[in-house]
Design a protein around this nucleic acid. Structure first.
Lengths: 341, 341
DNA sequence: GCAAGCGCCGAAATCGATTTCGGTGAGAAT
DNA sequence: ATTCTCACCGAAATCGATTTCGGCGCTTGC
């Protein structure tokens, strides 16, 4: 139904090749002919068929965003990430295709690579390491450019864009220490392997720098698959013989939930207990008290991921793109001075 | 580089047609041959080229999500919408392609239609009516199935999925009336034409049902392009000789901002003033006090939009799909009894 | 006047699938 | 033995572009 290059060819009395060359500014076409072609193309409303073009050029000008995680658990982040991803892709004449239900399914990722439906893949929130080393090899084998977001990957040859979680945790901890806290609780989430590892390292570094001994009792490994896991971490810590005076929680939503748990237990924040979140999601700013937290520069991370991926697409010999972006400490009202007793 | 149907053909000594028919379960192929083909396809890692397939079948199994609005202004909603959209699309073996920077650009939408890159289009947050009547005609002319989300459209022949804003405003207003309020402020946002109109109608209906006179002084038309427009609405109303005892704000974020404005003016919520938001975004639940609001069923709306669009794609003679979904009143702590003085 | 050079255009191959339609061989019917 | 079916398979057309390469006509150089 739509007008094809063949239609143009007939009405103009020119060959398809000439039309194509004129429209793409390639090859030998006199300027007079080019004008004629352009004019006719506009008048007839010609637009090349994407499929035909893709088939011939062996590229799709599309980037796949593979969300490798239950999507409603990361939609908050997606909201901040997608604008950056989509706009910078479109500036480069690419578009984003969403793939949300192929978590951990290697067959489907393989098929995606082989179908050449996309020119490159952004892997968002890869599952735990053990399951993914194979994933990256798989994409490499299929020669599909790819980049991981927003987590770092402990392989020299895999590209990623991540935030500096170690520094984030260090900043939060140092902030608490500067407020006079010395017993600082720390929530771990071992399932997000590298992130957890980095944050814990930052926490330990800050303690060392502050001359505070590391107390294992203050470090709780949570299990986000258990219900009410937020309460468990909180209660375990507060039921300690010597409870902490400040706690770093793993995410803002957890800290927000703890805000009401604390109120229910009659614990005032920040007077009795300082708490911090992580990530700097929107809602962390409107709680009472507002959360002290660390913000990942998600919009920039999105831009950078796209730019790096495009570089990998353009030149497959380019070195792996590994970026760790600085985070920003946001001090709000959920952290306060600790008055020694 | 990837293995093609021709490779399969060579290694099996069968024609391409037979291979294709075997793989797609079409036409006459003996079960013995089919098995051979399937086995070889699996062993060689054959996956059909998306481009070739699209070209021949004249369809792409892709749905375009055209975000016709500054994307970072709607990313909150996108976060709740996209999971529903993406997963239900993928259940039907479709994928979502994002287009975020073609707001109001008819040429680019036309080109998208003509390139047949997508089989259907979801138009999210269409700009004001006057600019879009042409848009819908354009897509119809190009025979591109399309559906508008999440706003209704005043054309009988355009499909849409929207929430019942009229009922939402009526519920909120009736709730306030039942709490004893009689002077109820109402913020309008004329630029979101139909939505504003519907909500205002719901507000008026509730007043009438409650036997309360409509007072034009209590209805403020805001202009979201002005900075601090939240403060303007709020101050205008509270500076009235007889200020309202309750106000309906147009969105949750506005109401949240007003929460702190009120505190700054020494106005207690809900003791001195009840306020409500609209939309039920995540952060509305964590403020102090938490917001009474109305929730649009965004996940279901996303599902329904996809399902309806697929119906339009499958059968272009099907009647326009117009859905208005019920909303849910969420009563929280920002609204309270009004004690007559 | 003839060869070489150059600007411009077109025929045909190609990308990788799907689909139509005709042909072949084995078995059944006469 | 000949014809008719019918199951199965393949040749070729098709989808709509891009790209290579060769050829034609005209100018330039000698």
């Amino acid at each position: 139904m739509p007008v094809t290059i063949e239609d143009l060819s007939k009405t103009l009395g020119l060959s398809r090749s000439t039309i194509s060359k004129a429209l793409n500014d390639r090859g030998d076409v006199s300027s007079r002919t080019r004008e004629r072609v352009l004019k006719a193309a506009h008048e007839l409303g010609y637009q090349p068929s994407a499929a035909a073009r893709n088939l011939r050029r062996q590229r799709s000008d599309k980037i796949g965003l593979v969300v490798n995680y239950p999507i409603h658990q990361v939609s908050d982040f997606l909201a901040e990430l997608i604008p950056g991803l989509a706009t910078s892709a479109e500036e480069a004449a690419y578009n984003l295709i969403l793939y949300t239900s192929m978590a951990g399914n290697e067959t489907r990722i393989t098929n995606l690579c082989r179908s050449r439906e996309v020119d490159g893949i952004i892997v968002a929130w890869p599952p735990r390491l053990s399951e993914t080393a194979a994933l990256y090899r798989l994409m490499s084998d299929e020669r599909m450019p790819h980049i991981v977001l927003p987590r770092r990957v402990p392989h020299d040859d895999v590209s990623y864009v991540a935030a500096d979680h170690k520094e984030g945790a260090r900043l939060l901890t140092a902030h608490l220490i500067s407020l006079g806290h010395r017993r600082i609780g720390f929530e771990r989430l071992p399932e997000v392997f590298e992130t957890d590892h980095d944050r814990h390292a930052g926490y330990a570094t800050a303690l060392r720098q502050g001359g505070i001994n590391y107390d294992p009792a203050l470090v709780i490994a949570a299990d986000s698959s258990a219900d009410d896991y937020e309460a468990r971490t909180f209660n375990t810590l507060m039921d300690l013989p010597q409870p902490p005076t400040a706690i770093l929680f793993f995410t803002d939503p957890v800290a927000i939930k703890v805000l009401s748990l604390a109120k229910a237990r009659g614990i005032r924040v920040p007077d009795d207990l300082s708490i911090t979140g992580f990530d700097g999601v929107l809602s962390s700013g409107v709680t009472e008290p507002a959360l002290t937290t660390v913000r990942q520069p998600l919009p920039q991370m999105g831009r950078l991921a796209v730019e790096s991926l495009l570089r990998l697409i353009a030149d497959e010999t380019v070195e792996p793109q590994q970026h760790t972006l600085p985070v920003e400490l946001i001090i709000r009202r959920s952290t306060g001075l600790h008055i020694r007793t």
